[in-house]
Computed example of a mutant assay.
Amino acid sequence: MTIEIGILLSIASIVIAYLGYQLNKQKQQTQYQENIKNDATREAVIETKLDNIGNGVENIRIDLRANAREIGALGERVTRVEESSKQAHKRIDAISPDKG
């Protein structure tokens, strides 16, 4: 009878050890899947942020091109105003009596 109890205890301990192993294996697999989900979520957020940064850079480039055009147009206008004021000064000098 003592041999039967020893065999039963051995079998019970083997079954408990196997169930513990399976439970631990499931827990590790669940954690692995959660880590994969978290990594995928993080990567998606990073990609979204990079896309937004890329769009922002493209918008800045467009704004810089528009500003460059405006500055070019203003430069032309300043040149015309300077020429016009130079002509006006020549006419005013021609009209005014000599100061000397």
Rank of each mutant, 00 (worst) to 15 (best):
I36R: 02
D51G: 14
D98R: 14
S10V: 03
Q26V: 06
D93L: 00
S85I: 10
G72I: 08
R61P: 02
A68W: 12
R69D: 15
T2P: 04
E34S: 04
E4G: 04
G56S: 13
N67S: 12
H89I: 10
N55G: 11
L19I: 14
E70S: 11
Q28V: 08
N55V: 09
K86G: 04
E82W: 02
E83A: 05
K27Y: 11
A12F: 03
Q33P: 00
E82T: 04
R42Q: 10
Q28M: 12
Q29M: 03
S13C: 11
G56R: 01
I16H: 07
V57D: 12
R65Q: 12
E58R: 15
R80G: 08
V78P: 01
I71K: 08
R91K: 15
I60D: 14
I7S: 05
E47Q: 07
T79F: 02
Q28S: 13
N59H: 07
I14F: 15
E82Y: 03
I11C: 09
P97L: 12
I5Y: 00
E82F: 04
A68L: 15
D51E: 15
T30Y: 04
E58V: 14
I7Y: 00
S10H: 04
N67G: 06
R61K: 09
A44R: 11
I3C: 00
A40E: 05
Q31S: 10
N35P: 01
G100K: 15
I62Y: 09
A40G: 02
G6H: 02
Y18G: 11
Y32T: 07
K49E: 07
Q29N: 06
I16S: 15
G20R: 11
I5T: 09
V78D: 04
V45S: 12
D93W: 00
K27Q: 13
R61Y: 11
Q22N: 06
K49R: 13
Q28A: 13
R77P: 00
S96D: 08
E58T: 15
V45F: 09
D39M: 05
S13W: 04
K90I: 13
A17Q: 05
T41Y: 05
A66N: 07
L23Y: 07
G100S: 13
A44G: 05
I95F: 14
N24M: 14
I95S: 09
Q22T: 12
I95H: 13
Y18C: 13
A94T: 07
M1T: 08
N38Q: 09
N59G: 07
P97K: 14
S85G: 02
Q26F: 03
D93F: 00
R65V: 09
E34K: 04
N55P: 02
G56M: 02
D51C: 07
L9N: 06
T2W: 00
E82V: 01
Q87G: 03
R91I: 15
K25L: 14
K86E: 09
I16Y: 08
K27I: 11
Q87F: 07
G20V: 14
S10P: 01
V78N: 00
A66D: 13
Q26M: 06
V57W: 05
G56P: 01
A12L: 06
T41H: 04
E58S: 14
K90E: 06
E47K: 13
K86M: 05
E4P: 00
E43W: 03
I5D: 07
